[in-house]
């Protein structure tokens, strides 16, 4: 079974929680484990927060796009911004690397995304924006006892 959901929302921090909730509701209908649900909420939070803070410098008048799709229990999440882009993606994805130590960022966002998802791809170009694409295979649904 295939399904998808796309939404655009303002780049304000209030929407971080909203994006997590939308993603969680979208996958809830496929009987994810509690662990999977929590992993998905966390990675959505990381990528959306990055779009808002780094992509858009916390200017609230831009838009973030979240695309969710599922096919055969393979979940794909794409978070896109049209912000400033990432100069060196490899460096950005290093554990503990942050370009904003002044904001007390931990530099763990990409590390968490890579840990919790099966695959993370980052497509970015300077002053055009960034797309973070993450894929995760949800575990098979356990049959209930009759």
């Amino acid at each position: 079974m295939k399904n998808k959901l796309t939404c655009n929302f303002s780049s304000i921090s209030e929407n971080e929680g909203l994006a997590r909730m939308i993603a969680a509701s979208f996958i809830a209908q496929y009987d994810p484990t509690l662990g999977e649900l929590s992993d998905i909420k966390t990675v959505v939070s990381e990528a959306v927060t990055n779009a808002i803070i780094h992509g858009y410098n916390e200017e609230g008048f831009h838009e973030v796009c979240m695309r969710l799709s599922i096919d055969n229990r393979i979940l794909t999440i794409e978070i896109e911004d049209q912000g400033k882009g990432i100069n060196e993606v490899d460096q950005a994805m290093q554990p503990l690397y942050t370009s904003r130590p002044d904001m007390e960022r931990s530099g763990m966002g990409f590390t968490i995304m890579e840990h919790f998802m099966d695959k993370v791809e980052v497509h970015s170009s300077q002053s055009r924006g960034t797309v973070v694409k993450m894929v995760k295979q949800l575990s098979a649904v356990k049959a209930n006892c009759m």
Partner: peptide
């Protein structure tokens, strides 16, 4: 109930 890397940053600070 929920924390992400922003929380880690706050606590590390």
């Amino acid at each position: 109930e929920f924390m992400d890397s922003s929380g880690l940053g706050l606590i590390l600070g």
